[in-house]
């Protein structure tokens, strides 16, 4: 990855402005799951304790204390649970990179391999001049093995337990033990440049897709 300046998603006129959160405030409030979690890596976390065995009847729960209010200069609104994650807009390839039909990249962070594909036929949501450029997570949604892509058949094959996904059909599972179609990377094309701007579905191994993104 070249060191591109990370830009936040632009405000779009048809998107609701209510509930949008600026980057700093988002980080300080923690993950969208609501717990006061620490996103930035620091010292090694303590070793995992053994799981607490269940009590025979559920005890009344003491509510988790709400995070301390953050003092910021801009106005902050609490994100709605249905709001999108603040996916970064990152250039991941150029049209020229796809002359062989496939190009490996990473998005939204370097531990998330993706395959950018030029399918040779127009598909729904395909970008570029021929509306045939798509991209998917390269990690199998079964148990996270990096997959092989066969440009001849346009099929992702996982070498671990052989889940197969059809890149020409929105990466639907053809067959296999996976329970999720491959996450799809949302793309935009600007001139010769291909940008990744979001993800549909959940990438393997994450509590949410931006858990490893340095924002």
């Amino acid at each position: 990855m070249t060191d591109q300046e990370v830009r936040l998603p632009e405000e779009e006129t048809d998107r609701p402005t209510k509930g949008r959160l600026d980057r700093r405030s988002f980080l300080k409030l923690g993950s969208v799951s609501g717990a006061a979690a620490i996103l930035a890596a620091c010292a090694a976390p303590p070793p995992a304790p053994t799981a607490v065995p269940p009590t025979s009847a559920p005890q009344a729960q003491v509510p988790t204390p709400a995070p301390s209010p953050v003092v910021v200069t801009e106005k902050v609104e609490v994100p709605l649970i249905s709001e999108v994650l603040p996916y970064p807009r990152l250039k991941i390839a150029t049209l020229n990179d796809l002359k062989n039909g496939v190009f490996g990249a990473t998005y939204p962070d370097q531990l998330s391999p993706i395959q950018v594909l030029k399918l040779g036929k127009k598909v729904p949501g395909g970008v570029g001049p021929d509306e045939d450029i798509v991209a998917y997570s390269g990690l199998c949604t079964h148990m996270g093995c990096p997959m092989n892509y066969d440009p001849a058949t346009k099929i992702f094959v996982c070498p671990c337990h052989y889940s197969h996904f059809d890149a020409e059909a929105d990466a639907i599972l053809i067959s296999g033990p996976a329970t999720q179609n491959l996450p799809r990377i949302i793309l935009e094309v600007e001139g010769q440049d291909i940008y990744a701007v979001g993800v549909q579905g959940l990438i393997y191994g994450r509590p949410h897709n931006l858990s490893l993104t340095e924002l």
């Binding site: 969208v32 799951s33 999108v84 994650l85 729904p124 949501g125 059909a169 929105d170 990466a171 639907i172 999720q180 179609n181 996450p183 799809r184 993800v199 549909q200 579905g201 959940l202 990438i203 509590p207 949410h208 897709n209």
Partner: peptide, 8 residues
Amino acid sequence: PVYRPADR
């Protein structure tokens, strides 16, 4: 698009 769950 095919069925996809939430991203979290």
